[in-house]
């Protein structure tokens, strides 16, 4: 039943995109976090998508879902601001903020939200097609 696989494929995309949205949300929430006593500020995280084949055994090439393979931390240096009066300032008077780029995160969020909507629409279409298939030959 090949139509049934559409729900698996689109469902995997929805769950991957929602994980991406989750990561974007934590990045945005921590956009202004300063470094703790250990000097380590929050590092922006990015999800990495990977294709996962979900067809039947033997010929599983045709249905390709997606999953989050890893969540990677951005290793860039955090934003450093000179503010000697800040309680978290270091010996030179600099405060290290997280390395989150708010503009990038907003773009990422919009992209994730659009992809999410697309997958939902795919599922809705597949659902209505299957319903019509079930009624085949009935109300003719």
């Amino acid at each position: 039943m090949s139509m049934m696989k559409i729900f698996d494929v689109a469902g995997s995309a929805v769950s991957a995109q929602s994980q991406r949205l989750n990561v974007v949300a934590s990045n945005l929430a921590n956009a202004d976090t300063v470094a703790g006593p250990d000097g380590q500020a929050y590092k922006a995280r990015q999800v990495v998508f990977q294709t996962v084949l979900m067809g039947e055994q033997g010929h599983n090439d045709s249905a390709a879902g997606v999953r989050v393979s890893t969540v990677r931390e951005d290793q860039a240096q955090g934003r450093r601001v000179h503010d000697p009066k800040h309680p978290s300032a270091d010996a030179d008077g600099y405060v290290t903020y997280s390395n989150v780029n708010a503009v990038e995160e907003m773009v990422n969020m919009i992209s994730a939200s659009r992809s999410y909507q697309n997958s939902i629409e795919v599922m809705n279409t597949a659902k209505s097609l299957m319903q019509k298939t079930l009624q085949m030959g009935q109300q003719v």
Partner: peptide, 20 residues
């Protein structure tokens, strides 16, 4: 048609996958 629908669904699901 069902086969093609599934194929296109796979493409849409992988719209953000690097290298797909």
């Amino acid at each position: 048609r069902a086969e093609r629908q599934r194929l296109i669904a796979s493409n849409i699901a992988n719209a953000d996958t690097p290298g797909y």
